[in-house]
């Protein structure tokens, strides 16, 4: 419901606020699904940092969205067909929450049983993230560094110089 409101509202400020609410709700859902660490990250990053970023953009751009046609029929058709395909595919997935699902029987028991013997810390998520898969986490840091460089490269030129340059291009 909140998701629909996010897409429907034309005031981008209220859309950003609704998106923060949506993030908090999904964080609550993650708690219910036993993912405490993910819920913390989603609440801090999804509801916090993303909202701040969107608000920063709205401070620079126009607050109100340009009016659009109420329904974009080709887009709606594409979405409906894709959704129907996914519904069909979902019916092949194993039942939710069963302990003998394939995802629970492959390598997960090793991590559940051996994490404390291998690493000596009780939080399995932290152990996998920082010890077993630390090289991958290092890769993640590189991705974030690259993103930071990209943002810096896009925004480092002061606005006045940029505008003058585009005027010179016009002449």
């Amino acid at each position: 419901m909140v998701a629909v409101a996010v897409v429907a509202s034309r005031d981008l400020f209220s859309a950003a606020m609704l998106f923060a609410i949506y993030s908090l709700l999904s964080a609550a859902l993650f708690v219910v699904l036993d993912a405490g660490d993910v819920a913390l990250t989603e609440a801090a990053v999804g509801a916090g940092i993303s909202t701040i970023l969107v608000l920063a953009v709205l401070a620079l751009a126009k607050r109100y969205e340009h009016p659009v046609k109420a329904l974009n029929l080709p887009a709606l058709a594409v979405v409906t067909v894709t959704g129907a395909c996914l519904f069909w595919a979902v019916s092949d997935l194993p039942d939710f929450g069963a302990a003998d699902n394939p995802v629970q029987t492959h390598v997960a028991p090793y991590y559940v049983n051996e994490t404390y013997n291998d690493m000596g810390i009780p939080n399995m998520v932290a152990a996998v993230l920082a010890s077993y898969r630390s090289i991958d986490t290092f890769g993640e840091v590189i991705v974030i560094f690259t993103a930071g460089l990209g943002v810096f490269a896009l925004l480092s030129v002061p606005p006045k110089r940029r505008r003058r340059r585009s005027r010179e291009d016009d002449q």
């Binding site: 993910v38 999804g46 997960a108 996998v128 930071g148």
Partner: peptide, 20 residues
């Protein structure tokens, strides 16, 4: 019984990359 920790790790990474 513990839930599977591996998807949690994967999604932690995905959330942070998503913000990037």
């Amino acid at each position: 019984v513990y839930s599977n920790p591996l998807p949690h790790v994967l999604i932690l990474t995905a959330i942070v990359v998503g913000v990037a």
